[in-house]
Write a protein that binds this DNA or RNA. Structure first.
Lengths: 240, 240
DNA sequence: CGGACTCTTGATTGCAGTCAACTAAAGTGG
DNA sequence: CCACTTTAGTTGACTGCAATCAAGAGTCCG
């Protein structure tokens, strides 16, 4: 049940069986949330970090004129906040993009686990570093890549992230968000996302249907998108 | 000498005199670096976090075709890495945009200070939260705001950040980067940055000369850029 | 005083946004 | 089970913001 979270952290430190038990015990109440329901204000206790176990979620900022930017995408195994702190007041919102099953870990419990166990500390810091690196790579995409490259890069990123938690095979994975959501993630219009998808499809690189992404030629897709998995900070991630 | 760093952290926790002494002792070797010199591989010890004390620096990713995206801007008082971890391998580069004077704090020293002192822990986590929030706001700018709004927003952001460390008055501050660097920060071309600057100048909102930014009408500039300082997570930051 | 940046401006191009209409698919209720 | 509504995806025509190309002016500094 807690597998995605623990499977992810295995990439960040050499965890023992006992370490994993401690991590499993951190995760307390479990909830199923409807899509589009606000996750952030929902902890049964106040100072609590949401962890996605199943489904996809995101964090976004609403701008003026209805413009929206999704600032982070949360997949199974992801912490929705840094593990040591919660914002005093929310300036952005966390919602499920699909129905989500969620666990909560209290800051206090995480803190004592971190203090007593250096491998857990290492794993959680690695996770935070990965989240930052993904943020920065997205900024580089949105700032400097073309629409086609951005869309292709997003497919590569999500595929790689799902592989980290054993939720993707070498050429396919779930795809649970629609074109509007892709556009708000990448700073594009939905119409243009649609055109870029068509190009990728017609180039024979991907198929997208029934909530499933199939990548027909990963190497070509990565080359086209300038996707280099080294920013994941995982050993051997390129051959993963 | 360490003032910017400590002045910044005061916004994150209610630090006592003793807390500030501990922070000052964290900072060890001090160095002056030339502009454009790589800061990240320069710690005298290996596991060490650079802290900017004077001058401006940045982190960037080089993409193909010479495209570049600056992913973070570092002003006096800023930590250039999260305080608990260093990447195993660098996927991006940290350089000075001006001559920079730099301090280094070892991860080990930070760790023991954090463990022994909850206010220091709180302050450092707040700092990390702020860095993330600034990153996300930039992503929203680059993804969803027009060129004029982006440039105006950047002025507001830097002005606000320099106010946090008492390096700006209510209507002016240093401005140490050129138009090329602004363009790589905001995902624009340098030519278009120049045109946006002209618009802001002709609207009577700002003057930019001699490494100095003068904001003639902060309220109007903020309104035009949709800048809302609440994302700084500082109490009363709007009236700061 | 010459050379190197940096800034400025005009002309042109092109990528991506907007508007609009239509199709397909997925719910929903009689 | 089938009309009906809603949501998601698709495509074309047109527009516009920002990129690119190019040339010239200012400014700093050895």
């Amino acid at each position: 049940m807690f597998q995605p979270f623990i499977r992810k952290l295995r990439h960040g430190a050499n965890l023992s069986q006992d370490d994993e038990k401690i991590l499993a015990n951190l995760i307390k109440p479990l909830r199923n949330m409807r899509a589009r329901h606000d996750l952030s204000r929902e902890g049964s206790e106040p100072r609590v970090v949401p962890i996605v176990l199943d489904g996809w979620a995101c964090r976004y900022r609403m701008l003026e004129n209805g413009r929206r930017q999704i600032t982070a995408l949360y997949l199974p195994g992801d912490l929705c906040e840094p593990f040591g702190v919660l914002p005093r007041c929310m300036d952005d919102t966390i919602v499920g993009l699909t129905p989500v099953s969620l666990a909560y870990a209290s800051l206090a419990a995480i803190g004592s686990a971190v203090r007593s166990n250096p491998r857990i500390e290492e794993a959680l810091w690695w996770d935070l570093l990965l989240a930052t690196s993904i943020d920065h790579e997205r900024l580089a995409s949105v700032g400097r890549r073309t629409a086609l490259e951005r869309v292709g890069h997003l497919f590569c990123e999500v595929h790689q992230r799902l592989r980290l938690v054993d939720l993707a095979d070498s050429s396919s994975c779930d795809w649970l968000i629609n074109q509007f959501e892709i556009s708000d993630l990448l700073g594009l219009s939905a119409v243009h996302v649609n055109r870029s998808l068509r190009q990728l499809r017609e180039a024979g690189l991907i198929t997208l249907q029934g909530h499933r992404l199939i990548i027909h030629d990963l190497d070509k897709l990565r080359a086209l998108s300038y996707f280099d998995p080294s920013y994941f900070h995982v050993d051997g991630s390129s051959s993963l």
